[in-house]
Design a binder for these strands. Structure first.
Length: 893
DNA sequence: GTGACCACGC
DNA sequence: GACGTACGTGGTCACA
């Protein structure tokens, strides 16, 4: 364990005491403005605390001080206000986001065992001035850390001042020599300089018209402010002479204000600031609470995927169930169905855990899965269960012929809805965010990569009981937070039911025509071999076409083609680069085809064949319900949301996706322009709403309005551009992004966007108001109150801020579309059951639902599906669904 | 194992 | 004027 301890004095020689004085307010300010507005899981801002902490850790490591003291300003008025009432007047009020962090900084310093001090009527500077003088007189070595150049006046033989530069990441130490180099003045003359030039940030007037250059020149010439004022007649320049004599008094007062006192009536002694090193145990809970996970390691804490050490864990008492009775199978109960992390399809159940008001129980897998009592309890809707990742539990049990019902709380989903940015699939990680630290992460228990294995049962049983206990303990807290955010309906009526729907879709799986896939694979391999030979022939040498590095060398060095774009590591060989080279060499076309076919072969043929269930020829994807920042689902192992469609060669892959029962059909229903319809609704833009109400082609309509032409005069080029702009609006891309996708200049792209917003003033108004709202609230919401926090929207970093602004505009659109289709899915599943239909919902691809349907239900479904989807959520514009069916997914177009 | 690069979908 | 620009998943290569 790394622990900071005062180092032994070398060779027994006692060196001078070393005192570090920190200007607390100044460093906190710097940190606050340098870092984006981070917050922890409780919504408390922590950026200043974080910056302060990293700085402090570095100071302690670099300086290894024997004494440390952090000085703070106290109150608003100081003795300087008696001299000059407007001292520090006109200063912007400290933002509340910062002031609320000061108590945390104080707590943190206490945790470090570092003395802090503030004194009524005095500023931090004065405390530092007084202590540094005392220390220097005692022959101590002093280093002052601040962001304020004024403190340079304190530099002496023994006292250094270290200034923060550029944010907080860089610092610069000033001793006598460096002050001289920088200003050509002694530290004491800094005050004279200030008297002349003033300081706008403190509202110190100085002499108007005199800036740093003139001030330094005068002080160099005459030695001090007083001597300058005594010798005004020797000053060169009539204007300057006049200014100086007019503002004598003001200059003297300014000097007084800028002078840091060495005589503050402080009640601390140097010895009070003794620093003995910190105890990691004191800091761990603070850091965890603040969410400083990256700093835990630096102070010798755990990173989350190491076992929580035994001392930190309270022992947990639990019972191993020998038989299942009402005491164990009561309600409500937290339930863990333990499966080895990763895929849960056909996964063995490693055991179960239940925590309820009667106690904590570990239940061996065999016992539960073979127990009729357990099945009855699990399937009983009225027995309330609290879980983590309901779908995992649901599917794992479903493979064992148990249909889990009555899930009333899912910790994973709840945490995701409260804040999608710190979601996760690990109980421990989420529990920690909410203050529970005794649960190990999955990786710590199971190991990772090659080392993954199911641990011995004593470890595993305790692990699952701890997880169940975390859920049990956190249920109320998160439920309350959801209610407070008005997200409980989203949670209970949408996402929870959806997880069961998704679970059913996943277990149902999609049938694949393996023979067909293999045949396509063979054909592709032949084509690839032929192409490879031709490419090598044209290049004059055999090389790996899949290696961007080798390909780049061949194209741009051997064949001397012009390198259009570079990447960090070499030449770019991406599609848009190759397309620009297409006319220049016949090898290019072949490489493009090789790339396209190679992708199909490796990702889609081989990739899919790898995950086909050998017994049933079905593919069971997993939908991740708690991952994307917008509320969309994602799909893994395999990803069935990116099966090719645009290019015919790729689209053919879809021919391998077939119904699981002979004679059935694949039916696909996709929302037409759902995001733009949502945008029309949210923005209430008349023009856009009209397009949908009149059922116009929205891209054509956009082209007509943006280019001011009649419908029949819209060229395909215009429509393509309009479509790209609409696309950009929906996905929140920038002018740069648009310029890339249309291969036009950024300026032109910017003009397009501007023209678009002129045409749709309601949209413009929406874009502006949503950004304002995001700045005010810190988050944006969808129609169903899904949230996304955007702390960076107040960042002073242009990039971070712009990105957050585009996100603010885009997330309510994309997220509401996600809400709508999710709602339709829940409703659809209900209707299928209610109508006793055999048809099965198989997949969701963001704006599209895929079903397999018996022939005789096609007609019924063709009516029901659009009806359900179009009425999922009432908008002020109609929703429209396009429907297709066929023998394979390919044919459902 | 990890990061860079590339490519597929919405 | 620079900054480095939708969100995902997954394959391959090349490095350690």
């Amino acid at each position: 364990m790394v622990q900071y301890k005062q180092k032994n004095r070398s060779g027994g020689i006692i060196l001078a005491n070393k005192l570090v004085l920190i200007d607390g307010n100044s460093i906190a300010y710097r940190a606050f403005f340098a870092l984006p507005l981070l917050n922890n899981d409780k919504g408390v801002y922590t950026n200043a605390v974080y910056g302060f902490t990293t700085m402090l850790l570095r100071i302690l490591e670099d300086e290894k001080p024997s004494h440390v003291l952090v000085a703070f300003d106290a109150g608003k008025t100081t003795f300087r206000h008696k001299t000059f009432e407007e001292y520090k007047g006109g200063r912007q009020k400290t933002p509340s986001e910062l002031s609320e962090q000061f108590p945390l900084i104080r707590q943190l310093l206490d945790g470090f065992g570092i003395k802090r001090y503030e004194l009524e009527s005095y500023e931090a500077d004065d405390i530092i001035g007084t202590l540094s003088k005392q220390a220097a007189e005692g022959d101590w070595v002093v280093n002052v850390y601040t962001g304020d150049k004024d403190l340079l006046q304190l530099v002496t033989e023994n006292v250094k001042v270290t200034l923060t530069r550029k944010g907080i990441s860089e610092v610069e130490a000033y001793d006598l020599k460096q002050v001289e180099e920088r200003y050509g003045l002694t530290p004491h003359q800094i005050i004279d300089m200030k008297g002349l030039m003033g300081d706008p940030s403190d509202n110190i007037p100085g002499v108007p018209g005199v800036g740093e250059k003139t001030a330094i020149k005068l002080i160099k010439q005459f030695g001090s402010l007083e001597q300058t004022l005594d010798s005004i007649d020797q000053v060169s320049g009539a204007k300057l002479k006049e200014k100086l004599s007019e503002n004598k008094e003001q200059a003297l007062m300014s000097k007084e204000l800028a002078t840091i006192t060495h005589e503050a009536p402080i009640e601390v002694s140097l010895e009070d600031s003794v620093y003995k090193g910190y105890e990691p145990e004191q800091l761990l809970p603070l850091f965890k609470d603040l969410g400083f996970n990256s700093l835990l390691e630096r102070i010798g804490g755990d990173t989350g995927q190491e076992m929580v050490s035994e001392e930190e864990k309270e022992t947990i008492e639990f019972e191993e169930a020998k038989a299942l009775n009402d005491k164990i199978l009561s309600s409500p109960a937290a339930l863990i169905v333990e499966t080895t992390p990763e895929t849960y399809h056909r996964a063995p159940v490693n055991g179960l855990a239940i925590v309820n008001e009667n106690g904590k129980f570990y239940i061996p897998g065999d016992l539960a899965l073979s127990s009729p009592e357990f099945k009855k309890w699990a399937e009983d809707e009225s027995k309330e269960k609290y879980v983590f990742d309901a779908k995992r539990a649901y599917v794992a049990l479903d493979w064992n012929d148990i249909s889990l019902q009555g899930v009333k709380f899912d910790l994973m989903i709840a945490s995701y809805l409260l804040n999608p940015s710190d979601s996760g699939d690990d109980v421990a990680v989420i529990a920690k965010r909410y203050g529970i630290h005794d649960t190990d992460g999955e990786e710590a228990v199971y190991g990772k990569g090659a080392k993954r294995k199911v641990p011995e049962i004593s470890v595993l049983s305790e692990h699952m009981v701890r997880k169940a206990n975390s859920i049990y303990v956190l249920q109320e807290k998160l439920t309350n937070e959801l209610k407070k955010n008005e997200q409980y309906e989203l949670f209970a009526d949408l996402e929870l039911p959806l997880s069961l729907v998704l679970g059913e879709m996943e277990t149902t799986g999609v049938k694949v025509d393996v023979g067909r896939l293999q045949a396509m694979g063979r054909e592709l391999t032949e084509q690839l071999n032929a192409l490879e030979a031709e490419i090598h022939e044209l290049a004059g040498v055999a090389f790996n076409i899949n290696s961007p590095k080798q390909l780049g060398e061949i194209l741009f060095e051997k064949l001397n083609l012009p390198p259009i774009k570079k990447t960090k590591t070499g030449y770019s060989t991406s599609v848009d680069v190759l397309e620009k080279l297409e006319g220049k060499h016949e090898i290019i076309r072949k490489i493009l085809v090789y790339r396209q076919l190679g992708k199909l072969s490796s990702t889609y043929i081989e990739g899919l064949l790898k995950v086909v269930d050998q017994q049933t020829d079905k593919i069971h994807t997993r939908f991740n319900q708690a991952l994307t920042q917008t509320g969309r689902l994602s799909s893994t192992e395999p990803n069935l949301q990116n099966i090719p469609i645009r290019l015919e060669a790729g689209r053919k892959i879809r021919q391998a996706f077939v119904p699981s029962t002979p004679g059935w059909k694949i039916l696909s229903a996709d929302y037409s322009q759902i995001e733009l319809r949502v945008l029309a609704h949210i923005s209430q833009d008349d023009n856009l709403m009209e397009a949908f109400k009149k059922e116009m082609d929205v891209h054509t309509k956009t082209a007509m309005d943006v280019f001011h032409v009649e419908m029949e005069d819209v060229t395909s080029q215009m429509r393509r551009h309009a479509k790209a702009v609409n696309f950009g609006i929906v996905y929140g891309i920038s002018d740069y992004g648009l310029s890339q996708s249309l291969n036009i200049t950024r300026k032109e792209a910017g003009e397009f966007i501007e023209q678009y917003l002129k045409t749709f003033p309601g949209v413009k108004e929406y874009m502006e108001s949503i950004v304002r709202q995001a700045k005010q609230d810190g988050y944006v919401s969808t129609l169903m109150n899904r949230r996304r926090y955007l702390p960076e929207i107040t960042s002073r970093n242009f990039n971070l801020r712009s990105f957050a602004e585009r996100t603010a505009m885009n997330t309510p659109i994309q997220g509401t579309a996600a809400d709508i289709i999710k709602k339709a899915m829940v409703e659809m599943e209900r209707v299928l059951k209610e109508e006793k239909l055999e048809a099965l919902m198989l997949l969701q691809v963001h704006d599209e639902l895929i079903f397999e349907v018996p022939e005789h239900e096609i007609e019924k479904l063709s009516q029901l599906v659009p009806q359900v989807m179009e009425s999922a959520l009432g908008l002020d514009v109609p929703l429209k669904v396009d429907l297709n069916h066929g023998d394979t997914w390919y044919d459902a177009k």
